[in-house]
Design a protein around this nucleic acid. Structure first.
Lengths: 207, 207, 207, 207
DNA sequence: TATGAATGAGAATTCATTCAT
DNA sequence: GATGAATGAATTCTCATTCAT
């Protein structure tokens, strides 16, 4: 009898794919890309090693896909906030806070996504994500400039600085257990928000 | 006749060590830590594999040493500028410009140093370097706050943001051949300088 | 269809393990631990190097396991004989003969097991085996002392001497192709039996 | 001017040779053949690595020579005692005690010499030494048989057993930190002496 | 002759990928 | 399609021996 790709089979396939991706994500979140080896992912997903290669051309592709999914979700959250009403400064602050709070909730994962590269192919995805992040912030900044809420500036460069400030100011030190001082995390987030808001804003006189 | 460790021999030994370090540095600059394997370094340095181990306890130690040297040099340059006279803002701008111009000269290397970890031992060095960078900028900011040149702020957090802004704003995109726009590099540097200066400064009113 | 670990597959796995152990044993028997390297074992077993590591955590573990198996078998034979009925002297003689005849059948191997250490981990197994051997003979001697079949003596020290006499009297010279004289092996065995029996027995007068 | 091998030069050469041999001996005594690497010997002897190769064709030859010297000395001591007056039993006991006390004084060395092989070439020397030891004891036993002090027996086999009993009874367990009981070393030596004397003597009746 | 830095073959181990079942 | 044992190239590190100075 001929082979039929029934709905049931389709469902099982999709399910397997999901389980693999989820397992990989979990492993990355726990131990970074370093710990996420193909065999380990297979084991965690409850499938055989070879099965991974039915769904992904290679281990690198799998991890790139994981990264892509996570990044996309983050980006969606941040950019939806960015589209909310309010002044540019308000939208910027909200976006920064959203990014921060999410990153702080899953530090090891955030570190792996943002800082820990392993493979050029994976790095490529990471970079794409960063560019997308830049664009989200760039558009808010550009809006602010147009409205004269922010001074004229290279919006793209400022967006880059902003993203960098977020990453370094929040993710890197926290994920590394490098204390930033006695402040609670919330205070650090606010300090970062202040910094980046000043960074894009009109400069005052000494007072 | 007894063997003498003549100056010539000393020179050869020192030279070998230098050649190994330089070869390692070059390989890292070209292909990151990924490409920098002990055998490859030996080959590039024109020595045998075993020779590497006469000068360094392990491959990781060699690469950590490379990183340490490069970072120290960068740090020295930036911190010596940070100690020069002038207002806090002037010193900050000078330090940022020095950092930037150097990083732009060796992008792949800067990327490897700053972003690409490989080994916990190496990562440790990288992290120390970052903390040192933070401290340099933190002290300038603290000075500025004391002089009321800058507003009250979490100097350490601001320093972190500043370092992040530098890394992301300059190193990461440039080293990845991701164009930041049509501007020349110099313009990007100035945009970054503007951003971070605003980031630490008094905030003005909309105008 | 789901993968089933069928009996056939189980058999193949067990067979592989056996083949690796047997290949290792053979290599040790031929050239001692010196010649028994992981790659050589893999080759001899007809498997890839990596396969060895599916069955054993490390090369040392493999070789320790080989040693353990061989030693255990020898010990079982000798100690089962030691538990047979008869006078202490009869049991001792029987145990010594059993040990000897087996050792003579595989000299190089016996030598490797008994004399040739390579690795602390392997040495540990060898040592345990010797201690177990001591205990077997010690208990027979202690029985003989209790029954006044043997004179009072340090049973443990005597057991050590006995084991040593066996090893040196039989294994070492024979395994090294050092002829012990014109006698057939059987005669040597009997000479050793005589020696150790006298060694534990009442001493007579000159006659 | 022509090169002259003056007495002074001869002396220096002999001195170097001695220093190398002594250093090697010391290293073997401290850490066994395992620790005695050519470079380490050179360092300990205060000469260059290459110098070793002026005096010995290879590392193995050096260590074999060390073994030869130590063994010869032991043999000389034991065999000179064996030639002293007294009954065969007295001479045997004296030789065994001499051997034992010397071995106990330098256990690690004794272990290395007797038990720890490393290299076939070195092993060869060890074996020769054992055969010489056998012969020393064999001749005493043969004398005892001729005088009817000892019963007829295979003198060579008995000598082998005797050597084995000594090695296993004294050297192996002690050097391995395997306690032989609560007895002091002296008691163990005496137990071994008793065993081997009984081993070569007339057997009595149960009493 | 003496020196000791350099050599490089060799040994152990890892892990992405394949393929017989 | 799924399985997971098997593969083996790749990598690190060691140490006896050589040879330019």
């Amino acid at each position: 009898m001929a082979y039929r790709r029934t709905e049931q089979i389709e469902a099982r396939l999709a399910d397997n794919r999901q389980r693999i991706l989820r397992a990989a994500r979990q492993l990355i979140a726990d131990g970074g890309f370093q710990e996420a080896q193909v065999v380990a992912v297979a084991h965690a997903a409850g499938v055989a090693t070879g099965t991974i290669y039915r769904y992904f051309p290679s281990g690198a592709d799998l991890f790139a896909e994981v990264l892509r999914i996570i990044c996309q979700r983050e980006l969606d959250v941040v950019s939806s906030i960015a589209r909310t009403g309010g002044s540019a400064a308000e939208r910027l602050a909200a976006a920064v806070r959203a990014f921060s709070s999410r990153a702080l909730r899953a530090r090891r994962l955030a570190y792996a996504i943002i800082v820990e590269p392993v493979d050029p192919e994976i790095d490529e995805v990471r970079l794409e994500y960063r560019r997308a992040q830049w664009r989200v912030f760039e558009s808010i900044i550009a809006d602010g400039i147009a409205l004269e809420e922010f001074p004229p500036q290279n919006a793209r460069a400022s967006a880059g600085c902003l993203v960098g400030a977020l990453l370094e100011g929040l993710v890197a030190p926290l994920s590394q257990n490098a204390p930033v001082g006695d402040e609670s995390e919330g205070a650090v987030v606010e300090a970062v928000v202040d910094f980046v808001l000043r960074g894009v804003s009109w400069k005052g006189e000494n007072r």
